[in-house]
C-alpha cells in the first residue's frame, strides 16, 4: 500500500516515469484480477491491464484528486475489459463436469485456495453465463472482486437502486444454478 499516493500522482502528472512505475507495481494485480474476472481469459486480461495503464498515463491530467484513485483506475480497467468481453465470441460450451469438480473443492474452511486461472475462468464463465450484462458486471465487481457498493455505482455509472436490484437478481439466478448443480 502506497502511503504517499497523492505525492506520487502529482509526480506522474508532471511526467515522472519512475513514479508511474510505482503506481503500476501497486495496482497491477488488482487490475489484472478485475480484468480477468470480466474477460475470463488470461491473455485478454493482460492486454486490458496494459491498455488501461497506458490510458492512465495519458489521462492522468484529467484525474480529480478528490476522487479515490483506485475507483478511477478500476473504472478504466472495467470499461476496457467490458469492451473486450463484448468482442470475444465464445463458441465452446463450459465443461460442466470440470465446473462441478472446482465447486466441490470450494469450502469455507479453505481460505488459501490455489486454483489454476483456467479453472477459475471456467467457473466464473459458467456462473455469469446467461445473466444480462449489467447483472454480470455488478456480480463480478461486488461479489467476486469485493468492490464496495458506492464504488460499483461510480465504476458502472449506476444508481444505488440499480446496483442493488441488479445484484439481487444476479444472486437469485446464481443461487439457483449452484443449488441445481450441487443436488
Amino acid at each position: 500500500m502506497l502511503t504517499n499516493l497523492q505525492e506520487i500522482i502529482e509526480r506522474v502528472k508532471k511526467g515522472d516515469q519512475a513514479a508511474f512505475r510505482k503506481i503500476v507495481e501497486e495496482y497491477r494485480q488488482q487490475a489484472f484480477s478485475m480484468a480477468f474476472r470480466i474477460t475470463c481469459d488470461e491473455e485478454e486480461a493482460r492486454d486490458v491491464v496494459q491498455e488501461s495503464f497506458i490510458k492512465v498515463w495519458q489521462k492522468i491530467g484529467t484525474y480529480d484528486m478528490t476522487q479515490k484513485f483506485s475507483t478511477w483506475l478500476y473504472k478504466i480497467v472495467a470499461n476496457s475489459a467490458i469492451d473486450r468481453m463484448r468482442q470475444i465470441k465464445r463458441h465452446n460450451l463450459v465443461n460442466l463436469e470440470k465446473v462441478i469438480n472446482t465447486i466441490d473443492q470450494i469450502n469455507l474452511e479453505n481460505t488459501q485456495m490455489e486454483v489454476e486461472n483456467k479453472e477459475t475462468a471456467r467457473l466464473i464463465r459458467w456462473l455469469a453465463e446467461g445473466l444480462p450484462e449489467k447483472q454480470q458486471m455488478v456480480f463480478i465487481l461486488r461479489d467476486l472482486q469485493g468492490v464496495d457498493s458506492s464504488e460499483v455505482q461510480q465504476i458502472l455509472n449506476m444508481s444505488e437502486t440499480k446496483v442493488k436490484s441488479n445484484l439481487y437478481h444476479a444472486r437469485i439466478s446464481i443461487r439457483e444454478k449452484l443449488l441445481k448443480t450441487l443436488k
Binding site: I106, N107, N110, L123, G146
Partner: peptide, 11 residues
C-alpha cells in the same frame, strides 16, 4: 461465491 472470491487470479 465467497470461495470463488478467494480464488485470486494469478498474474
Amino acid at each position: 461465491i465467497a470461495g470463488l472470491r478467494r480464488m485470486e487470479p494469478i498474474l
